[in-house]
Design a protein around this nucleic acid. Sequence first.
DNA 1: AAGACGAAAGTGGTTGA
DNA 2: TCAACAACTTTCGTCTT
Length: 306
Amino acid sequence: MTYVKKCPECGGINLFWNKEKGEVICKDCGLVVEEKMVDFDQEWREFDSDAAARKRRTGAPMTYTQFDQGLGTDVGRKSDLYSLGGKNKNKFFRLRKWQQRISTAIERNLKLALAELKRVSSYLKLPSSVEEEASRVYTLAVQKGLVRGRSMESVVAGALYAACRRHDVPRTLDELSEASSIEKKEIGRTYRFITRELGITILPSNPSDYIARFASALKLSAETQSKSVEIIEQAQSVELTSGRGPTGIAAAALYVAALINGEKRTQREVADVAGVTEVTIRNRYKELLEELNLEKEIKKSKKKKL
DNA sequence: AAGACGAAAGTGGTTGA
DNA sequence: TCAACAACTTTCGTCTT
């Protein structure tokens, strides 16, 4: 089986095959290029309907993006009732009433929230594995009663942010904030709250996870991308990265790599796509030059130009 | 004229008493 | 709960290309 080499959406070359989920996603724009690559053929043969019924064993796939995991049942309405006598009829009505009562609180909330979650995640073009994870996180949060006192939207945003981090397709808080129209600090706060309460541990995000997306936004070559990842790795080995914002580091590394490869971008341009200021890039850039003596490489590329 | 650089003051969040 | 603190931003003036 052969796979597409370029993302049909943005032309990016950073396709990533998540074997577990059976998806090929584009790390640049988050587009799911191929999804659910399962073998749809049956692995058994059936000769008559009887044998077929015995051998079939699947239903609709279970998913957290449906409020009841796609497994919900309802106590039926009219048509079923005709087959029941008086006593049973009453029992039936009672059951239905109870079900409606139980359903209301949590499930109504989940329905609304998951709709919102879908909206935001499609706005950000997140892969469905992230959406699924976020739905799961949100469902847990509701069950633990963590939504009380917080707006539903902010918890959704927080769950999405957590899911993104876990799947190494980080979006910045700014992007999430733009998509959900929730304040950045509010998202951050609920994010911290729910991850703590649910005991979800998330590693600090790696600057190189941002490189692919930033680079494609700036239309930089693949060589520049790998160069900047290389720079980040070096920076990490001399402890230049701890305590600093990962986006700032990614931006600076990208800026330097672009200089070295003669694909110069202004600090302003890089700063804009990375969501940091020029000053931050300058500070990181200065540190990078000091620690990793990259001056030579920059000079080298200048000579080439002349 | 535009971009790069740096200083200084301000902001929001974390930490430790 | 408050103050100290680090990272980052904003603003602005100067230097370089």
